[in-house]
Design a protein around this nucleic acid. Structure first.
Length: 523
RNA sequence: GGCGGCGUAGCUCAGUUGGUUAGAGCAUGCGGCUCAUAUCCGCAGUGUCGUAGGUUCGACUCCUACCGCCGCCA
């Protein structure tokens, strides 16, 4: 049996609508998940996402719309789920922190953690920022006036009793795990940052709120005057549903230790410091890795609601066609670094890569197959002897084992960009091969038709392999290409080069996959 | 203030343990082909590799200082 793997996006805080940045994270995780499914089989991969629906900010957002919190999050959660669905993010679990299954699970973890003596009840006086929903030390605040560094607003002095998680006891252990890559943080730059964050002793982590002040959370099983919410609550969304469905023991043994979290760099600290501590405090094993990505900016500046440049990802997918946003963010952004999104750039990529390269090469090959042989493949594909041509840049090897090499880039290096570059190198080879062999010239001489048949068999097979390698990135497009090639069974789709299309196979006439667009023709 | 990252062709970036004329894509110019979505192929470039020193037979690649941008921590 292949090793199982659990993959998650962050659990999205549902006080706003999904934007291109949240879509980016879901898309990266989705491509990763699809590559893993090809390796291990669908039944050995679990891909989870969901919405974080508790806390003061949600309650306030709901009130602002005149809705009960639950009614509000019902609406928001669907927006996220449908946005991801619209981008063909293929999830196995969609978790909501207000689901009964989840709430019950969090309560169970609280009981476990308390039984282990890792929760303490104590009075606390501190400076609290409502916007951040957290306490600050005076040193962290901007002076004068004790201003919250994030909201630039005064904090309140609050005195209350709360439940705290004693996490400093786990600090050394977490440091060791990160140093030894047992918690693998990549790209490596973020590993150093995480270790930095663990350099100082950790103060106890407050995990409750008195209902009197904030009741939109999960009631503590050992004190009905308190709720838990946001971080403590949301982390468990990675676990609650699958653990409830499969049984906690089974899930923890077979799935959890291989967990790959996809997160943004803004929540590195919570995931590298607090989350391991929360798990250890509950007596549970740790996840395998944190895959940290940067921001997706818009036209050079940070995408945020306040600057009014939030874009709805699905509108781009609709305007440009399926798979286009998927292609763009995976090709354009280096995983781990900030990237930039703009309609201009999207249009450029669309025309240069999708219309001119991918769409056109499929079109020209199928057109020749149709014109010269009525779409019939009459030779077995071979690896052409390229030494026959004078041009030296051609390497048919770019097309051999393409899927495996692309898969490695994604699963081992998180290098989505390089993976796509390899696929496009394959398209280059096909185009150069056409120019060098000029089948359209050979076809004028009936005696040379067998040669043409061989060239086209090679090219059609090359396109089939490209579609196969492209599938995790552009599932709809890959499907269209397979339809054009009239390939229906998985065995043929996934065959190594040379073992796919057979003589006698019939392919269809071309249909433009990506019609060229005028610049800035979006929306 | 402490730690770390980045600064390479007009634009976006690659450059593995220091070694021959520093690369790719896009954009630009010229030439070729006509099967194809006016697409494709070839050729041509331009770069004081942030600045100033240092180590070395030799540095984009190592060291030091400085400038600029950014992140994390305080």
């Amino acid at each position: 049996m292949s090793e199982r793997i659990h993959i998650t996006t962050a659990i999205f805080y549902s006080n706003g609508t999904p934007h291109v940045g949240s879509a980016y994270e879901a898309l990266a995780a989705d491509v990763f998940a699809r590559c893993q499914r090809r390796r291990r089989g669908r039944e050995n991969v679990s891909f989870l996402s969901g919405t974080d629906e508790h806390g003061d900010k949600i309650r306030r957002a709901a009130m602002a719309e005149g809705l009960a919190p639950k009614a509000y999050t019902d609406k928001m959660s669907v927006l996220f789920r449908d946005a991801f669905k619209g981008l063909n993010v293929d999830l196995d679990y969609w978790v909501r922190t207000t689901d009964a299954v989840h709430e019950k699970f969090v309560q169970r973890m609280l009981v476990e953690t308390q039984a282990k003596g890792n929760i303490e009840f104590k009075e606390y006086e501190g400076l609290y920022c409502v916007g951040c929903e957290r306490f600050y030390t005076e040193k962290e605040l901007q002076q004068p006036g004790n201003l919250c560094p994030t909201h630039n607003a005064p904090v309140e002095l609050i005195k209350e009793s709360n439940y705290f998680l004693k996490i400093d006891q786990f600090r050394e252990q977490v440091i060791e795990k990160i140093k030894r890559d047992e918690i693998l943080i990549r790209p490596e730059r973020y590993k150093n940052e995480a270790l930095n964050m663990l350099g100082e002793p950790l103060s106890d982590l407050c995990i409750s709120r008195p209902k009197a002040r904030m009741d939109w959370g999960i009631e503590l099983p050992f004190d009905d005057q308190y709720v838990t919410y946001v971080w403590y609550d949301a982390f468990w969304a990675y676990v609650s549903e699958p653990a409830s469905r499969l049984g906690l023991d089974v899930f923890m043994r077979e799935w959890w230790p291989t967990t790959e979290h996809f997160i943004g760099k803004d929540i590195l600290k919570t995931h590298a410091v607090y989350w391991p501590a929360i798990l250890l405090a509950a007596g549970l094993p740790l996840f395998r890795s944190l895959n940290v990505h940067g921001w997706l900016n818009f036209g050079g500046s940070r995408m945020s609601k306040s600057s009014g440049n939030v874009r709805d990802p699905v509108s781009y997918e609709k305007a440009f066609g399926p798979d286009v946003l998927r292609y763009f963010v995976m090709r354009e952004v280096v995983y781990g670094l900030d990237g930039d999104f703009s309609e201009e750039r999207l249009t450029e990529r669309y025309n240069a890569d999708l219309a001119n390269d991918l769409g056109n090469v499929v079109s020209r090959v199928l057109a020749m197959a149709q014109r010269y042989f009525n779409g019939k493949v009459s030779e077995s594909p071979e690896i052409p002897d390229l030494s026959l041509f004078l041009t030296k840049k051609i390497a048919w090897s770019d097309l051999l084992e393409l899927t495996e090499r692309v898969n490695d880039d994604v699963t081992k290096e998180l290098d989505f960009k390089r993976a796509l570059e390899k696929i496009w190198a394959g398209l280059d080879v096909a185009n150069k091969y056409i120019v060098e062999t000029a089948p359209f010239s050979l076809a004028k001489d009936p005696a040379k038709l067998p040669q043409v048949a061989q060239i086209l068999a090679n090219l059609l097979e090359a396109i089939r392999v490209v579609a196969d390698a492209l599938e995790p990135f552009m599932p709809v497009t890959a499907g269209k290409i397979f339809d054009l090639l009239n390939v229906v069974d998985d065995a043929t789709k996934r065959a190594p080069y040379g073992e796919g299309l057979k003589p006698g196979h019939q392919v269809n006439a071309p249909v433009p996959l990506f019609p060229r667009r005028e610049k800035l023709a979006a929306s």
